[in-house]
Amino acid sequence: MEQEMAYDALGNSHPITDYKDDYDGEKFGFWVFLLTEMMMFGVLFLLFAINFYRHSEIFALSSGSLNVWLGGTNTVILLLSTYTMGLASLKMRQGKVRVSAYFVGVTLLMAIIFLGIKALEWSVDIGHGIYPSSKILDAKDHGEILFFGLYFVMTGLHGLHVIFGIALMTWVLLLIRSGGIRPEHNIALKNVTLYWDFVHLIWIILFPLFYMIGV
């Protein structure tokens, strides 16, 4: 489409941003959206910090009962997945559409494995009677109730983001197939990559907070 122009009084032309096809605008909008996500998780980190300050020893003890190997495996999986997602974005810009779709698929697979391991961990905890309002947990010390309350809320909210990420990647794959994402029009892939980076970044902070302080 022809570039639309505005003309000043002297007749000089100035280009007009087309709101229907504005790569920078869409990327900027997504960054602003990530800011809101950051504020939301920020509140939870603040709550963790305050309660950790009040119950330091019991938090460390409770943390010891989580399986650091499963959590660590998940951390490695997310780190690898954010790398493959980055490669998908890069390959798309280089015009290698098939390779790009392949990397999105690999990322998708790793996200599902992450959720599987997470579900395993939760079911072990719940099997031991550790879940909000359970008789076993409510009989324990306040610090332990708060630790596991925050654990389930924060990893749960992160898990919801992973599920949402899986949905987004499926959508991206469909778009690549239908030609909605092309090397010259790849903003959706770019933004999903940003989103996935954010999701992995949150986990990078969650992992030491919940799994490492008791090691």
Partner: peptide, 22 residues
């Protein structure tokens, strides 16, 4: 600012439904 109240109200919802204790 809105995300702050969003997550806070979500915590109250979870408090009423699951009893997380925060």
């Amino acid at each position: 600012a809105t995300p702050v109240i969003g997550i806070t109200l979500l915590l109250v919802i979870l408090e009423r439904t699951l009893g997380i204790g925060i």
